[in-house]
Design a protein around this nucleic acid. Structure first.
Lengths: 293, 293
DNA sequence: TAGATTCTCTGACTATAATCAGAGAATAAG
DNA sequence: CTTATTCTCTGATTATAGTCAGAGAATCTA
């Protein structure tokens, strides 16, 4: 690989732009303009709310409305008002709409097969493995980490997921009330902060830093969503927390963890955390770590 | 073809469609509509013929003309009549056009870097390696093999490349006149045929089958262009020739080769060819092979 | 319960990306 | 030298993909 990294990425982008063009022509081939096809696809077999479609596809409400009117005119969808909220409208595919969607599905399959077909078995496996790798890493590179409000719904959701996971993994379950607390007011600067990782609007990980008086920081609630694991996100979160800690003149970071969280323990050690004597009486902890910054 | 492979390819396509959309918005971001930007890019630093641009981008002549008029109006290009052929027009970028193109170039770089930036060193290397692999195999899957007219310029070009390469690789050079002949009239059905491999209009490999009376076929002029090597194209060409041989009721295939063509010899053996006694007096040959079909 | 917000829709408008028919000039082929 | 072909251009027209302003109804918030 003599090409500089950026050159190789650009070359890849050129190749893919071309291929995606072919894919779109394929989709487009017969039938609908691309906008309608995408919408038809996103509605899915079980229907969807219009507002949901709009935000998923990132389209203007006037435009979506027009696309829906067109699909309705073709008898591919029915639109009805939601029972729960009279403002919200629900789109469902009709029989004809389902057939049309199956046709799109089939075309996408045919296209995918046309890429594999000229290759031999070993090349196919290599291609698919490399695609999975590219996809994974591109997704990883889309994850952003930012300061978050501990009272926001995304943070609350992440903490719930975190507690639920501890409940499953600890031998004796987990009761947040028994554990050392970290309430919202402690998690706002200057006494602490929450970092949240997002993947396209969706929260996929969190981490908390509490700042104590004696230049001691405490890391808590490190969690990565299952679909975002194996991408080095835990380490990224930890490093981002350390950066904030340094800025707050923290000299030593503490954290404690349960023996069932094996990957976490390995990550802490890999990031330079040393196991030390228990520095608190957290009932769920088996290992206590510290790192001097 | 097992479904998981197709599923992974489709998932990859979805991810890439999204990324390419972002790339286009980036390009588009400021400045020009996408069509103009693509054209500006394709004109290149040294200018180009309009007809060449049209065929490279696959656009209608009226449309290209209009795009050129628009770019001309913005002072980014100048169009002049070719000296050789009064019908052909040549487009050149002006100073401003070159700056604009450099800007596009820069944006593509920034985009590529934005993919790499959030990753750590080892992830970057993995991503780039996987991209190279995907690109290579997708390009391989774009190569088509078809019967070709031995008098066509593509075939003549491939044969010239083949002879030039033999001249370089054989210890004593290579003189086509001394070698056993294969003239155009022998390479048309029913007495023979030429297969040509194309990658997006460009010839990248060839192979010849001569059919003799006693159900004996002869493989000659197997060549793969340097940029298409390592993709299994030689084997694909050979297998395609064998298919044609079977259809022509050939029972045994002969071929001879020079000891310096090591990869070729390995490929023949890997495809089931057995080394036999010399069956002709080809002066450049060291190994003679046959395969019963 | 008033006022703000959310959700969807319509009307009016624009930019982009084409396509088709045909004209005019230059060149190639017979 | 005539005819066919190639290359480019203009005019007329279309489809696609939006954007913006605002209206009307339902719902949420203070």
């Amino acid at each position: 690989m003599e090409l500089p990294l950026v050159e190789q990425v650009r070359s890849f982008n050129r190749t893919m732009t071309e291929r995606i063009g072919v894919l779109n022509d394929h989709f487009l081939g017969r039938n609908h303009p691309l906008g309608e096809a995408r919408l038809l696809w996103e509605i899915g077999e079980h229907g969807a709310e219009v507002r949901e479609l709009r935000s998923r596809l990132g389209l203007d409400s006037a435009y979506v409305s027009r696309l829906l009117r067109s699909l309705e005119g073709q008898g591919l969808i029915v639109v009805e008002t939601s029972g729960n909220d009279g403002r919200v409208r629900i789109v469902q595919l009709t029989e004809a709409g389902l057939r049309e969607r199956a046709e799109l599905d089939h075309r996408a399959d045919v296209f995918a097969q046309s890429l594999l077909e000229p290759l031999n078995e070993s090349q196919r496996l290599k291609l698919v493995a490399a695609m999975a790798q590219v996809e994974r890493l591109l997704i990883a590179s889309q994850i952003t980490i930012a300061l978050a409000d501990p009272k926001s719904s995304d943070v609350i959701w992440c903490f719930e997921q975190y507690f639920a996971e501890l409940g499953k993994r600890f031998e004796a379950g987990f009761d947040p009330a028994r554990s050392i607390s970290a309430h919202a007011h402690e998690l706002m600067p200057p006494s602490g902060l929450v970092l949240l990782a997002h993947m396209r609007e969706n929260p996929v990980g969190c981490g908390v830093l509490k700042i104590h008086e004696n230049a001691v920081g405490e890391i808590k609630r490190m969690w990565v969503a299952p679909q975002a694991r194996g991408l080095g996100l835990g380490r990224r979160l930890l490093e981002a927390l350390e950066l904030h800690a340094r800025e707050a003149r923290v000299a030593v970071l503490h954290l404690e963890t349960n023996r069932s969280l094996i990957e976490a323990i390995q990550m802490y050690q890999g990031c330079g955390y040393q196991e030390v004597e228990a520095f608190n009486d957290e009932p769920y902890a088996h290992h206590w770590f510290e790192k001097r910054l």
